[in-house]
Simulated assay, not measured.
Amino acid sequence: MEFSDQPPQNPAVPRDAATVILLRDTEQGLEVFLQRRVAAMAFAAGMTVFPGGGVDHRDADASVSWAGPSPSAWAGWFGGTESVARALVCAAVRETFEESGVLLAGTEEGLVGDTSPFTGAREALVTRELSLAAFLAGAGLTLRADLLRPWAHWVTPVQEKRRYDTRFFAAVLPPGQDADGKTTEAESSGWQRPKDALADAEAGRSTLMPPTWHTLSELAEFGTAEEALAAERTVETIIPRLIREGDKIRVIMEAE
Rank of each mutant, 00 (worst) to 15 (best):
residue 1 M to G: 14
residue 9 Q to R: 12
residue 9 Q to K: 12
residue 11 P to L: 15
residue 11 P to G: 12
residue 14 P to Q: 08
residue 14 P to M: 12
residue 17 A to L: 10
residue 17 A to C: 14
residue 19 T to C: 15
residue 25 D to S: 05
residue 26 T to W: 00
residue 30 L to M: 05
residue 36 R to Q: 04
residue 42 A to G: 13
residue 47 M to L: 05
residue 48 T to C: 02
residue 50 F to N: 15
residue 52 G to V: 07
residue 63 S to V: 03
residue 67 A to F: 11
residue 68 G to Q: 02
residue 71 P to A: 15
residue 87 A to H: 15
residue 88 L to M: 11
residue 97 F to H: 07
residue 98 E to F: 01
residue 99 E to Q: 02
residue 102 V to R: 07
residue 102 V to F: 11
residue 103 L to F: 12
residue 103 L to V: 13
residue 112 V to A: 10
residue 112 V to I: 03
residue 114 D to W: 03
residue 124 A to D: 09
residue 132 L to C: 04
residue 132 L to G: 10
residue 135 F to T: 04
residue 141 L to P: 03
residue 145 A to D: 08
residue 149 R to H: 10
residue 151 W to L: 14
residue 151 W to I: 01
residue 155 V to P: 03
residue 156 T to L: 13
residue 158 V to H: 03
residue 159 Q to P: 02
residue 160 E to S: 04
residue 166 T to F: 07
residue 173 L to V: 09
residue 177 Q to V: 08
residue 181 G to K: 05
residue 188 S to H: 02
residue 191 W to G: 04
residue 200 D to M: 14
residue 211 P to Y: 10
residue 211 P to T: 02
residue 219 L to P: 09
residue 224 T to E: 05
residue 226 E to Y: 10
residue 226 E to G: 11
residue 242 L to C: 14
residue 244 R to Q: 10
residue 248 K to N: 11
residue 253 M to N: 04
